[in-house]
């Protein structure tokens, strides 16, 4: 991929893509091996932050600032998802 930015920023973008990808794989490991359900819910929070980071790095690489809208939507929706999972957990012990 040919980036239209200065060398410093290009290095920063490649580094950021690299470390975010490694972080995603670590989250995947915890998602697969997490012993309990709350462990996996916590990984959802991490993956949301990571995808906000990936979107921002993509914006830096291509200059398409429209994709910030996606970051706003993710930041909103993940909160709802967390609350819904917590309510589901609490409801499960009520029965």
């Amino acid at each position: 991929m040919e980036l239209q930015t200065s060398p410093v920023l290009t290095f920063a973008i490649y580094f950021s893509f690299f470390s975010l990808t490694i972080s995603l794989f670590m989250g995947l490991y915890r998602l697969l091996t997490g012993p309990t359900l709350p462990d996996r819910i916590v990984v959802m929070d991490l993956v949301a932050s990571l995808s906000i980071g990936l979107i921002i790095t993509y914006i830096m690489a291509t200059g398409q600032t429209v994709f910030l809208n996606v970051a706003v939507a993710i930041a909103l929706l993940v909160f709802m998802g967390n609350i819904a999972f917590a309510k589901y957990l609490i409801r499960r012990i009520r029965k």
């Binding site: 950021s16 975010l20 972080s23 670590m26 991490l46 932050s49 980071g53 790095t57």
Partner: peptide
Amino acid sequence: IEWIAAFLLISGSLFMLVAAIGTVKLSDV
């Protein structure tokens, strides 16, 4: 400005990497 932005981008991704390492390494929820 590009140097500052590159520094912020790298440090932000490093913090996310640290959070991911924490999910693997720490002991409970």
